[in-house]
Design a protein around this nucleic acid. Structure first.
Lengths: 411, 411
DNA sequence: TCGCTTTGTCACCCTCATGAACAAAACGGC
DNA sequence: GCCGTTTTGTTCATGAGGGTGACAAAGCGA
């Protein structure tokens, strides 16, 4: 009796968690995988082998000799250089960006930046997807999925952009549906995902950036226009029951402040965005560089080592104080253990970290006892990497799905 | 060869989820258990049998003939009448309450209410635990654990009450530690758990009350003094990274409002608590009934069918409007799919549901498109039931732990 | 060179849930 | 009243999946 057993393939259930550990850089070796996963060495070995045969990771032939350690050195687990990628796109007020992103949040290839967004979402997304498809053809990589970041609240699970007004797109555009159709037409047969840009940046910061290891991570960022927030709880993006959570732009930070289009006064949105800083400093928006870049430059120059005039310093201080009020309100409600700031808010933090941190502590109820660390974001293109995370998620949940991924279009 | 296998005991891993389904009333029969658990009938049967031998549930001998259904009728799964209980205690500004709570949130026995709380937490908790131990002796029930609800922010995981000021307890009292010591001294050898009263009421409403089935549940309630909030996400209480989340009392709801001890003005806390309503209506606090009861009575009388004067109606409307502002702010940040109101807030909702709901929709950004249902709480003693939930949680996670529970003290 | 420590792998075993067959308990139609 | 039909509950063999313990491998230091 030849017991032709077809391969037991141990460690199937632990496959997803294992890949996530490698993906987020928390499992450099099989030994670490063993402890992090809470399984035996045998299982961890089987899991690593399985991920290797799936073409997602590689195991070093020669173990890297870790200095000062005893015992047999462990082979390093690295993300496969020629593994599959996700197609990621970010649309913002001043243009769009397209890239291929591998596991580990590594940007593998980038299309030339585009500085114009067509007011018809179908046209704009067709352009973006075409750029992505060209990248796939050029690199010959397989594609596991596609993700899109937009500066708008996006409903779940249907993926409708409620207010993509800075793009001059119609409110309520079914962005996910349009995106998926564009992918089909471009011959990229993958699922399309869609999310708010700040939410996705927060996800990316949590997995690969300044939010790494935080339990309750709050992100607040100015984009090119307005303010957005996001929350990552236990590694999962909290988008609320309908995807509309963390609409923080309309927290009141100055009851006597300027009127906001929402009908209230002194909202975080109008008090701490790029335009607010330029106006407060008595500057006109200059011709070169985006509004965001100009405001960031001004805030940085207002730091201790900076060269700004007293006007700019005063305006920056005022914005820091209002941001502190807004963050304190959020701390009282969400009690995060880390806050990552992006865009102009990041520049404000870097201009005077002490003032912002003290302001938040003063205005939050448990400022003294609760300990929240406030840090700047570290990713250059967080929204882009986060969009890729959406596309990667099904693979992280069940790595064997990569087997269903066909070769890139055009090969 | 007598293969003396010690009983295979199938369905061990699904035991916890199964008990939770019965506990929350979502699995009345084995057939439902099968579908809800996503397992086969064989497994569901084994699981039910195991829970039965653990003494947690009972299976009807005679199947209840469901009207109008085909096929063999299913036996009903009910919570065992003589099963173990949790010791639950709630301390509030005007006294404390102690009860034994079985699975399903059913209050099995209650100690006579006490109207005084000793300013030394150790003394007060000794009294409360003594009342609980007496109940255990009187009923002869086994005890799986003990839970305590206090009107204060409670840190996690150490269980320190940061501001139990309405109890005249010292700020920073290590309540969980004291509670555990009292249990030991009273001869109740179980673990003690501790939480904020509104948080626990929210948990109870989610599992057994008006919050049942909600994905993202927000609870806001006035206690006897002040305002508290709580959030239940995917069935788990969100208490933030340090247990200090949902400190909603100091949201600004009226920039020109009365000063609050927090240094700001027009906080939800001082604008919508019982005292605020009485003052706005031009009433002095009467001698009989707690402040909370008097305020609730006034609000109810101000409803459409009520008998209140114009002063009371105007004051009630004003409070409803301010509450609506506060809730809208929370909706913008948290995007819950349901809001459960308790205490005076519940009375305000019931006085004029339309006004409150419209107010929230008007002030929230997605009021029209997002759909949040706002409902009154349905549990009489939510905090007490919620405190019991804390004690039950280890059993819900792994029902076999009840085997380690010893008989009640004094038998 | 020999211990010592840690990593990786193999053969065997144990747990748990599945799937299929069978039995049980209702209902409806004739 | 008897017979299909439907749904529920149980029994038993099977298989997936991970644990266990022994052994080999690969470094370090004496």
């Amino acid at each position: 009796m030849t017991t032709s057993r077809t391969k037991p393939e141990r460690g199937r259930n632990a496959l997803g968690p294992a890949l996530e550990l490698v993906h987020t850089g928390r499992a450099p070796t099989r030994a670490v995988l063993t402890t992090e996963l809470g399984v035996t060495r045998a299982t961890a070995g089987a899991v690593a082998g399985e991920l290797q045969t799936l073409g997602l990771i590689t195991v070093d032939a020669r173990p890297g000799a870790a200095a000062g350690s005893q015992g047999r050195p462990s082979h390093r687990l690295t993300i496969a250089d020629d593994g599959p990628v996700a197609l990621a796109a970010q649309i913002h007020a001043d243009g769009f960006r397209v890239a291929l992103v591998g596991l580990g949040g590594r940007i593998v290839a980038t299309a030339p930046a585009c500085g114009e967004v067509h007011p018809d979402p179908a046209v704009a997304l067709t352009e973006a997807v075409a750029a992505g498809a060209a990248l796939l053809r050029a690199t010959g990589r397989r594609c596991v999925g596609a993700g899109l970041a937009v500066p708008s609240a996006v409903t779940e699970p249907d993926g409708i952009a409620l207010n993509p007004l800075h793009l001059r797109w119609p409110a309520g555009s079914p962005v996910r549906e349009i995106f998926t159709r564009c992918l089909e037409e471009a011959g990229v047969p993958v699922t399309g995902f869609c999310g708010n840009d700040v939410n996705l940046a927060a996800l990316a910061e949590h997995r690969h950036g300044a939010g790494h290891g935080a339990r309750d991570l709050l992100c607040v960022a100015t984009g090119h226009r307005g303010v957005g927030g996001a929350l990552v709880l236990d590694g999962r993006l909290h988008t609320g029951s309908a995807g509309l959570a963390l609409e923080v732009g309309h927290l009141t930070v100055d009851p006597a402040g300027r009127p906001c289009h929402c009908g209230s006064r002194g909202c975080l949105d109008v008090e701490t965005d790029p335009m607010a800083l330029l106006e407060a400093a008595g500057r006109e928006p200059g011709p070169d560089g985006s509004l965001l870049d100009q405001a960031c430059a001004l805030a940085r120059a207002a730091g201790p080592a900076g060269t700004a005039d007293e006007n700019a310093r005063g305006a920056t201080r005022a914005l820091i104080d209002r941001l502190a009020r807004g963050l304190a309100g959020l701390v009282n409600i969400l009690n995060p253990d880390r806050i990552v700031l992006g865009g102009l808010h990041r520049a404000l933090l870097e201009a005077d970290p002490g003032r912002l941190r003290a302001g938040v502590a003063d205005h939050s109820l448990w400022g003294r006892s609760g300990s929240v660390s406030i840090v700047p974001g570290t990713l250059d293109h967080g929204s882009l990497v986060g969009a890729a995370e959406l596309a990667w998620q099904p693979v992280l949940d069940d790595p064997s799905t990569v087997l269903r991924v066909r070769a890139a279009a055009g090969t």
